[in-house]
């Protein structure tokens, strides 16, 4: 899985990490991969919640002091609850 698109949101706080991720994901096609680095604890909940709303899939891995989120862009389709 190549990760050409990397967003470094370390040092920013909610909702900035999700906003940066969303900006970066907007032009991507389904199946493309975006990597987000964030150290805001709220992102642990909000990145998956955003991905779920947008139909992306996301995996998170703890690194040294931050989290690496790997987002696979899904078919753009908003969901509700």
């Amino acid at each position: 899985m190549s990760a050409e698109h990397v967003v470094d949101a370390r040092g920013t706080r909610c909702p900035v990490p999700v906003v940066l991720a969303a900006r970066a994901a907007a032009p991507l096609s389904p199946g493309e991969v975006l990597v987000l680095l964030a150290d805001d604890p709220v992102a642990v909940t909000d990145v998956p919640a955003w991905a779920w709303l947008r139909g992306h899939t996301v995996t998170a891995r703890e690194e040294e002091g931050w989290t690496r989120y790997t987002v696979v862009v899904g078919v753009a389709e908003a969901r509700s609850t």
């Binding site: 709220v42 909940t45 909000d46 919640a49 955003w50």
Partner: peptide
């Protein structure tokens, strides 16, 4: 400093 532990535990959006 921390989001609502309720929203976090549910895994739903906690900002906004």
């Amino acid at each position: 400093l921390r989001a609502s532990h309720v929203l976090t535990a549910m895994g739903v959006l906690s900002h906004g």
